[in-house]
Amino acid sequence: MTPVVIQRNIRWSGRLIVIGLVVQMLSLLWTHPLAFVCFLLIGCPLVGAGILFFLYSLVSHEHA
């Protein structure tokens, strides 16, 4: 994987994580069952996907 591709993957994983964290922040501002569900079903998967994508881009890195 070239450095450009790695940087692109990092950019995407960062975006996913930030969106997930924003969902988490918004859900914490509202005391309602829907906020809990948004956190569980939207925030957590987005952050999880971002982390996994970042880790994938690390392990798939091949030295030239």
Binding site: I10, G14, I17, V22, M25
Partner: peptide, 22 residues
Amino acid sequence: IFFTMIVAVLGLFTAMRPEFTS
């Protein structure tokens, strides 16, 4: 909330400047 905000800012910085990771 504050902790999440700080982590989000750090994540945003990393996402916007991935060239730092070289």
